[in-house]
Design a protein around this nucleic acid. Sequence first.
DNA 1: CGCCCCGTTGAGGAGAGTCAATGGCTGTGG
DNA 2: CCACAGCCATTGACTCTCCTCAACGGGGCG
Lengths: 258, 258
Amino acid sequence: MKVFKRRLGQYVSIDDDAWVTFDELERQEHCFLPGDDLITAGDETRRVFILNEGWAIRYRLLEDGRRQIVNFMLPGDVFDLQSLADLKADHSVTAITHCKAAVIPSGIFVEMLKKSAWLASAFWWSAVQEESILREQIVRIGRRSARERIGHLLLELHRRFIGATGIEVEKLTVPLTRADIADALGLTPVHVSRTMSAMRRSGLISEGRGGEITILDRDRLARLSLFDMEYLHLKKLDLLKKNGVRHFRETSSRINAD
Amino acid sequence: MKVFKRRLGQYVSIDDDAWVTFDELERQEHCFLPGDDLITAGDETRRVFILNEGWAIRYRLLEDGRRQIVNFMLPGDVFDLQSLADLKADHSVTAITHCKAAVIPSGIFVEMLKKSAWLASAFWWSAVQEESILREQIVRIGRRSARERIGHLLLELHRRFIGATGIEVEKLTVPLTRADIADALGLTPVHVSRTMSAMRRSGLISEGRGGEITILDRDRLARLSLFDMEYLHLKKLDLLKKNGVRHFRETSSRINAD
DNA sequence: CGCCCCGTTGAGGAGAGTCAATGGCTGTGG
DNA sequence: CCACAGCCATTGACTCTCCTCAACGGGGCG
């Protein structure tokens, strides 16, 4: 539960009481193996996941077998808040590494929100960030070249990983095959392979064994990928001090859990 | 305000009291001309828009001028609920036709939510639908051919238009230039033009003057575009009758506005 | 050892992009 | 009322990014 705490702590300063609620969750932790579905397309179960360990992908399959990975779930990510309202999932979520996740029936989840306005804010914030990531994914696929897409994705994953773990890693271990990257970026595995080889040759990245990727020249890669450092909204909301923001705190907390 | 009523009414059955709240909103209606910004990238203003008339686009510009349209806003759409939490907008929303929209400061908006749990559910539902549209947009540009993308977008816009107005129009008047369609679908205007010409030749669509588009063979177009009729979640939630759903109503309303 | 999955590389092809010219429509001003 | 400018759709010719098909090779695992 540690990862989760530091993730949410980035958005809002959560009071001590709220942490008690989390301890209940630790008992609900499930394990998933690579390939296991957390959510299956067509599912109607209403539950919220908090990913504590491992990576997962959210994807959709077309009838003819084409796959599009919509986004990646890293430790600390919360999903599907939308399942609280949805009739049935239009996509699947599958573990791509060994995963640990708290699985919370929506009823219990909502109880949690009611207990703590802070918590509700944090989850709201988390949903906003996820939407922002979706929008960025649209821009990435729609208007960027293959090299830009890959560079941009690597930078995003790197930043999100640091945000989740708090460890300023140099080497990011990316548990993705070329096919995964291709399906996320609207490319083919062959072309991803070629493009990444070229990126290695030009000294942008280097790869070790087991998916270890090092971003050698972050600034150059960011420039080449037109990476906007702001969209992840990683800045901490200091709700207590800023005046203009205080109003938001009072209100939007209530939206979620007064 | 009529459009808006029928839009929200699709998701939940709103009680009469809530409608009183809407009357307040009618006084807040603003007009926008084509090209006017409703939200400008970098904006920090916290307010929610309810579009009553006209079309708008949400887009992001890269530094070198490339533009990606993230999604379209049609009458009845509500945005940005996320601005309640966001620090500043990472994208712009611009009117592409003459538009009328209620502009609600977030404080007032939240007051509304508190007055009616029904309303809160409806807005939550609306946000879920928007996210679903974003995911579908990702699949569309990531894994579909030019013809599939265009066909799929036309079907989506057609369905959303009917959902918004309730009018089962045959001819949809699409106020989009080839450049707009291209920037939405990750293509170039030239190729959009070519592809749509081909679609006209093969009898899938026809175009009249002023952007009037008729979908001649909806089933064939849906098959060719791999259009999934379900993702828009247009089905009405009958919260009062279904048992499994009733729990949701009690809970998720409270998330938003107890 | 041998299988399978994965990454890589090559050759050739196709879909989409680029550049450029044309023509229609609209709005404006002489 | 007509001339002209500006915007947009279209079409042609050519280019290039990315895809397809295919072969090869390495590492993990039974």
